[in-house]
């Protein structure tokens, strides 16, 4: 695991993947499954999906930095 300073976050990544899927499907998606309030002109259900895609991107960057950040540039 610790070759060339690389850290491993496999278990956390599996949990993250499952969590990302869960917010997009029922029953959790039911929380976002409504029209109002509108967010930036988009219905709440659509904004919900886009919001979580944003969260996903940030989390992925964090995972990569955690795992590979210590490697020599």
């Amino acid at each position: 695991m610790a070759d060339n300073g690389r850290r491993n976050a496999t278990r956390a990544f599996v949990i993250f993947t499952i969590a990302m899927a869960l917010v997009m499907v029922f029953p959790i998606f039911a929380l976002g499954n409504r029209v109002e309030p509108f967010v930036l002109g988009l219905p709440f259900s659509m904004a919900w999906v886009i919001f979580w895609i944003g969260v996903e991107f940030v989390a992925l960057v964090a995972f990569f930095r955690y795992e590979h950040g210590a490697e020599g540039k």
């Binding site: 990544f13 599996v14 993947t17 990302m20 997009m24 499907v25 659509m46 886009i50 996903e56 995972f63």
Partner: peptide
């Protein structure tokens, strides 16, 4: 949207 966002995640592992 959900499909495009999630489809590639398992590839990371």
């Amino acid at each position: 949207l959900a499909y495009a966002a999630l489809g590639l995640l398992p590839w990371y592992l």
